[in-house]
Each structure stands twice: as structure tokens, then as C-alpha cells.
Design a protein around this nucleic acid. Structure first.
Lengths: 211, 211, 211, 211
DNA sequence: CATGAATGAGACTTCATTCAT
DNA sequence: AATGAATGAAGTCTCATTCAT
């Protein structure tokens, strides 16, 4: 896929009619399926359209080019992922710092376990589109959510919750990626969680706080 | 007319003459350069051959197909990376556990900083080739090196150094990846290092040890 | 980047629109023309597409690969050839055995004379594709047609018409091939026919029959 | 393989030294092996040289190009085949006409049975090189041998032995090719022979003779 | 709006042949 | 003489995108 010559990444039109929304949804779903079934290299617009039960022409009415499609799919995925993380953080506000962190680890692991394959496949898109901005935006959401949660800790105030959140999220995300990217978690799932939790807890505990 | 191919990943022939070795090296080097200059999606065998100053035919005399070339490049990169990590671990044997870990963090950050771009570009190859085995092998080397180092700690024996090593490496690797994959380290470099160090130190400290 | 192909011989899609049928026909026709004009070794998909007045892409939309194209062309040719032979056999039912055979010889020679060149060119395809099955199917049709005709002989019943048909067809086909494959029939056309007819007549006469 | 621009078909040099003869023989043998093992499309000079245990360069010292190699291989094969047929004819001189013919059928079937695969593979070369002349020469040898044999019949003189020989050989060769080209002779081997013999005997018997 | 046939640039790969060593 | 590394033209096939119906 060629990337250079100034490509439009935003979808062509917002589906106003119900029918359109269904079509777009089908296309999104089809993209993921093709991605999983045939791999990212073999993904092409014709296959996606076929799977979605529409013609290529129709696909191109909703997305001006392949990149915009992938971009939209990625965006939607990240949005939903972060929605869930935010919800998890909100649900845990007001507890003890270490417990809150434990909750985040748990939530993130669970979400990722459910969709390890999709996650992996989409990573290809990130590189292909150089869609780092989109990922950054997602990371910011995650950090903000975690930081906001940490601010409500009932056992002391962090001097820089944002910084803590940043490292905690990096550690969780990175670790999880490392284990789930390999198909067989070489550690029993529970073990990863325990160790990762221990690491984050001890980090949070070590981070300076004013009571 | 082709009749029924077969995808092979191992290189085609070992260069017997001195001339050949030079050629193969040039091809490796060219691959990295093209990868960095044009991105992984734009990489094609013609460009690589051109950059290496040879003809496509020559390239295909050493690698039966594009995949085997990328595979070999990746393998070589990971080998060298792990060589450096192992050296760093060995140089720090026999210290206090937390200090050793600090050293590893430092070393890994340094290595990765030097080649963030290449590292990122190669990650695409991992996905495209589904070369997880190769990555796994590298990870094992890293874990073994760290575990071996931890076993020489002069301030107490870990009950399961392998497990500690695993999580520590995952955290370091994951965190680093997250920050370096975004071109601009959003944290001052020093800050990442400080926080990551703190996290790993506190984890190691928290891990059970028998004096 | 290709990952793992698979050689398919069946056509890719059935033309649904009228336009498609025209295209496919043009491609068939073009294949034969290129075959005759440049020889089988020089035949390539680009030339065929050009001759057919379409782009390579179009060609590949109907045939997944070069082999399937050649296969289809061969199949169509054999089908038509056998259609004509069957018609000739049917038209001669109910005569004297030797006369019927004479008719078959005549018919086959005529058909082949008309398309000696194509026939020769296609033979290369049979070898290249190892499309013996296709040829076998055609031979079976021929044998069945001849045997059925022989069964209607008004001058005695053959004990094994199938066996007679088999040898008769082999002799006719083989002999014809031998003479037409060399561009210049070294025997005056009439002479071949006369001799071949004599051979087949005497064979049929010699074969056991019950009045 | 390109065929047009005036290509030299004769071998580059007649091996004068024993060593050369061995090399050339090895190359011939290797060509057949590669032909059988990988098929005619995949046959290439490098593979042949490898199999023969020499380098491509050496191969090109004996044959100016690929075509001349194939040409030589074919020529040698046909020569040997006809040597055997001639021998068979000579051994049967002076018998009854029908018995002599029976002998030829027998001999030809036996020879071809032994090397059906090679025979088939070489046929490709005939087409690729358009080496009909070579084949014609072989056919002439066969016809001459059979005609000469027929002239010694002790039971009557044929008016045109050459013509009889021509048709008999065409029938035998064509029939045999038809049955052996299909891997599985659909008739029990003995049955082919019996029927073919009957056909040729009755033809020879029917052909005019002066006692 | 939808369809799907058509396009064609461009990617991968092969292989006959040469020539420096 | 022998070797085998290097060449590069040519062939096969893919796929994003357009447009007539």
C-alpha cells in the first residue's frame, strides 16, 4: 500500500441513514474478519467488500481509500478499548492506591485476553499507516483515566499522578503485549497477573505521596 | 511457467568465496537502509538490490525469496541486540540485586535509543512474517541472561530468578517500546529511566529473597 | 508480499454480465491466436491480454493463473473436437461395419486437417500442464461414440465393440498425429486416407463377429 | 526459452579426451534425470550442471546454449531408439510377412514400455525446439528398416513396401504413444499387443502382394 | 446509490548466459 | 579448463481504484 501522496484519512461521509450505518458496521466487521482470517498482507478491499456482502464500489462510497478504512477501523477499536479502561478506572475511584492499580491490571489483562488476535493484527495497521497519533491519543486517554483515578486515592496524595500513571500504563501495556503477542503465555495466566500486580503495587507504594 | 512453489525461510547458499560474503553483507546493510529510508511497506527487493549495488538476481542467489531476506535481517538484528544485553548482564554480576537491575535498565535504554528507528521498522517484519519464534528465542536469551545475573546477587538469593527476570524484562522492553515507538519521548529521557528504574527496583525488592 | 500460493486449475469466476462472456471469449480466441502466431514457448499472459484487447488484470479476473487459462482453452478445444466426432458417428449409425469405420476415418482426418496447427500447439500444453486427465476424458468420449456406432452395424454383432473402438481410435488418432505433426504430409493426403482406411477396414473385418 | 534469433544447435566441440566424453555423458544423463524429476518447465542449465557434478561454466563449454544441449540429448535418444528397432527388424528378416510385423510390434512395445516417462518428457523438447527434422529422420530410419525387412518376406513381394511400412509404423507408434502416454494402460498390456498385432497383420495381409 | 468489470503500474521471481578468478 | 558469482530482461500475478451500467 502506497502511503506518501497526501492521502485523505477521514471517512467520506457520515452515514445519516440507518441503512448506511449498517453497511459501515458490516464493513468494519468484515475488515477485522479478513484481517484475522487471511493476515494483514493479504487484506484487500475486494475481500473486505465481499465479506461485508457489498461491492467494492459501495465500500469506496464510504471510504475514499483503503487507508481511510483501516484508519477508521483502528480508531473505532482503540476508542472501544479505552472506553472499557475508563469505565474500569471510574468504577474503582476512591479506594486505596495499590488496590486501584490492581484493579487496572486486572481489567486490562481481561480486555486484552479477549482480543489478543485482533490486537496483534491491528498493530500492523498502526505501522502501515504510521498511525501513531491515533495510538498516542489512546494512550493519553488511558493515562488521564488512570491519573484521575489515582487522584482519588483515599490513602495519600501523589505529587505527580500523571507521571505515575504514565509508567504504570506503559508497564502494564508493554508486559501484556509481550505475553499475549506470543500465542502461548509461557507463564500461567494467573502468574503474569500476580507478578505484574506486584510490580505495579510496589512501584506505586514506592512513589512519593503526601498523606 | 511456475508450477508449485514453496515458501522457504532459510537462506539459499552459504557464500563460499570472499566476494560472496561482502555481497551478503551489503545486502543486509542495504535492507536496513531501505527500511529506514522508505519504510517497510515501500521496501521491495529491487530497491534493496539497487542500494546494495548488486542486481536482483544476485540477491535471489542468496535468499530464495523476500521473506527469507527479511527473516535473516531480523535474526541478525536480534542476535546482536541480545549479545549486547548479555554482555551488559555479565559485566554486572555479583552486585546488589537492585543495582544490577538498574544497570540492565540503563543498558537496554541505551541500546534501544541508538536504534529506535530500526527497531520500529523491524517490528513490522515480525508481524508480516509472523516471526514470533525468532522473537521468542531472543526473549529467552534475555531472560536467561538476567536470571543468571540475578542469581549472583550478593545480597540474598531469589527463590525463582527466572520468573523475576521474565517480568522485569517484559516491563523494561514494553515500556521502552512504548516510549520509543512514539518518535518523541514525551517524557524527558532521564525521567523515563528514573521511573522505570524505580519500578523495577521496587519490584525486585518486593520479590521474596532468602538472605 | 506473497505468502503461500496454491495452484488452482479451475477458472476463477463465471461471467455474470453479458460483457464478461464477450471478454472471456475474446481471451480464448486470443490465446489460440498467440499460440499459433508465436508458438507455445513464447506465449505469455501479457501477449494474450493484449491480443484480446484487455488488460492483464482482466485476464486474471477470469483465470487465477496462466495454467488455468491454458487448461480451459484445451478443454474447450477437446470438447468441440469430440462434439464433431460424435456427430459424425451418429450420422453413420446403422450401416455396414467397414463403411462406418471408413466414415470415421474420413471425418477425423477432415477435422484434424482443418486445425493441424492448433492441434499441434495444444499438444505442448498437455505436456506442460500434465493434463492427461483431460485428454483421457476426450478419448473416452471418442471410444464410446465409436463403440456405440459399431453396435448398430447391420452386418453382424461385435463381441467387444469397446475394445475394437479403442484400437481403431488409437490407430486413427496416432497415425493422423504422426502425419499432421510434420507440416508436410509426406504422403499425398488421399494416400494416407486410403491406407489408413484399408488398415481399419481389414481390422474390423478380422475382428470376430456373430451374424 | 527464446528460440528465434538464429541459434546454433550443434555442440560446441567434439570431446577428444576421455575426460570430456565422461563429462558430456554425465551432462546427458543429468538432463534426463532433471527432466524426469522436475519436469520440462523447471529444467534449467544450472540444475543440469549441478546434477552432472560440474559447474554451469563447464556445461557451456560443451554446449553453446541450452537448446543445443536439448537437441543433442534428443538426437542421442532417438538414435539409440532406432538402433534397437533396426536390430529387431534385421533379426526378423526372411520370415512370413505377418510374423515379421508381429515381431516389430512386439519389439517396439517393449522398448517404449521401458522408457515411457523419458519418451514423454522428450516430446516436450521436440515441440520447444521445433525439432521435427530430427524426428523425421528417426521416422525415416524406422520406415526404411521396416520396408527393408518386408522386402525379404518369404511369402510374396509387396508392390510398395515403403508405403506399407509407413502406415504400419504410424499405427504402431501412434497407438503405443496413446496408451503409454496415459500412465495406466487402460487395456491389459497383453491386450494392446494382441489387438495391435491383429490390426497390423490384417493390414499387411490385405495389402496387395505378388507371390 | 449500488454494482462489479476493467485497468495497469508495480511487486516478486527465474534463468540463460557471461566473465573474472 | 573449470568455477560459480553476477547480470538483467522478461514473465507471472496482485490490488487499489475508477466508471459505465
Amino acid at each position: 500500500m502506497k502511503t506518501s501522496p497526501r492521502v485523505v484519512l477521514s471517512p467520506r461521509k457520515c452515514p445519516r441513514q440507518a441503512r448506511s450505518a449498517v453497511t459501515v458496521d458490516a464493513i468494519f466487521e468484515a475488515t477485522l474478519q479478513v484481517l484475522l482470517a487471511t493476515g494483514s498482507t493479504r487484506l484487500n478491499t475486494t475481500k473486505v467488500a465481499e465479506r461485508a456482502g457489498v461491492s467494492v464500489g459501495t465500500l469506496y462510497q464510504y471510504f475514499p481509500n483503503k487507508q481511510s478504512l483501516l484508519f477508521a477501523v483502528l480508531e473505532r477499536y482503540l476508542d472501544r478499548l479505552m472506553d472499557r479502561l475508563e469505565a474500569a478506572c471510574e468504577a474503582r475511584r476512591g479506594g486505596a492506591a495499590e488496590d486501584m492499580i490492581e484493579g487496572v491490571v486486572q481489567a486490562y489483562l481481561q480486555v486484552k485476553a479477549e482480543e489478543a488476535a485482533i490486537s496483534r493484527a491491528l498493530y500492523y495497521i498502526v505501522i502501515e499507516l504510521d498511525a501513531r497519533e491515533l495510538v498516542d491519543k489512546a494512550i493519553w486517554r488511558a493515562e488521564r483515566a488512570i491519573a484521575a483515578m489515582l487522584s482519588t486515592a483515599n490513602d495519600g496524595q501523589f505529587s505527580d499522578p500523571q507521571a505515575i500513571a504514565r509508567v504504570v500504563f506503559a508497564a502494564i501495556h508493554g508486559t501484556v503485549r509481550m505475553f499475549y503477542e506470543r500465542d502461548l503465555p509461557p507463564m500461567a495466566g494467573g502468574d503474569v497477573e500476580r507478578q505484574l500486580t506486584m510490580m505495579c503495587r510496589s512501584y506505586v507504594a514506592a512513589a512519593g505521596r503526601t498523606p
